[in-house]
Amino acid sequence: MTLSAQAPESNTGAAQGMTIVARTQAQMVRRRFFRHRAALAGMIIFGLVLLLSFSSIGFLGVSGWWDKSYLATGALVNQGKPTLSVVPEFLGGSGIRLGEHPFGQDDIGVDYFAKTMRGAQQSIIVAFLVAVVATSVGTLVGAVAGYYRGKTESVLMRFTDVMITIPVLVIAAVVGRRFGDSGVLLLGTFIGLVIWPSMARLLRGEFLSLREKEFVEAARAVGTSASRIIFRHILPNTVGVIIVAATLSVANAVLLESALSFLGLGVQAPDTSLGQLINEYRTAMVTRPWLFWWPGIFIIAIALSINFIGDGLRDAFDPRQTRVRA
């Protein structure tokens, strides 16, 4: 039984006040996405993290509203304990205030809020670069392999087989060792350039099934060029799969970058990232736990919110679950 999206052939239905409304694919996706509460929450949280990290200490020379730098050292105030307080005075706390160093200070008196924000910025940039590069390359390779089949496919797929035999962390670590100290842009790009094969596999599968569909055959029958079929006819049909996979790969890339930085194979000091911060202060867990907690909380917030967004997108693009059988 199909309940929706069956537009009346004539206007009989509408004239009788019946509620069969034709919705476009995009409208339906948007509607389903906004009904996914976890995804919505994820989007809000990620938006807040993004806003906070980029507006506070500024970005690309534009200065932000937070007056302390993530590099300048200072005198330790109260052993560098965080001054952030969220318990109001009438509950026996010290009131809701940020204070001088809301996240505390590290061992040489650097403001830890500024440092965490800088780390979050760098982690997000690396993660997005990795996801964008991996998705683009993966999509291209997967599309070409899935469409042309034959020799092109076997060469490309053998190559992805080779790359898949190498655990992602291993290949990324090898790349990170080389490009870790040459800035986040190079690091992100190069990690993206080695972890695309799983994306290529996914896309190839999609293309393999779509290329057999009637509309592709129709396009081929009227002599449409291969590149036009790939980009104009098939690719738009895989857009859901690509968006979902790309979103989830951002979350994975955040974790991958932090793991690399933790191993000392990612972003190098004096520049910083969330993983690098945890690595730097992992022995401080007992003595100065805030140095360990703040970056951890931010990694989890970023990864969790993006994972939820990805899940919401998947549900929105895959309408199977709302179908009612009759």
């Binding site: 979350a251 932090s258 993983g275 945890i278 690595n279 007992v286 990694i299 939820f308």
Partner: peptide, 18 residues
């Protein structure tokens, strides 16, 4: 499961240790 997907392994390991 979502939380587990989003936890950095090394962070969890340090917490477990403590």
């Amino acid at each position: 499961a979502f939380v587990c997907f989003s936890l950095p392994l090394f962070w969890v390991a340090v917490m477990l240790k403590q």
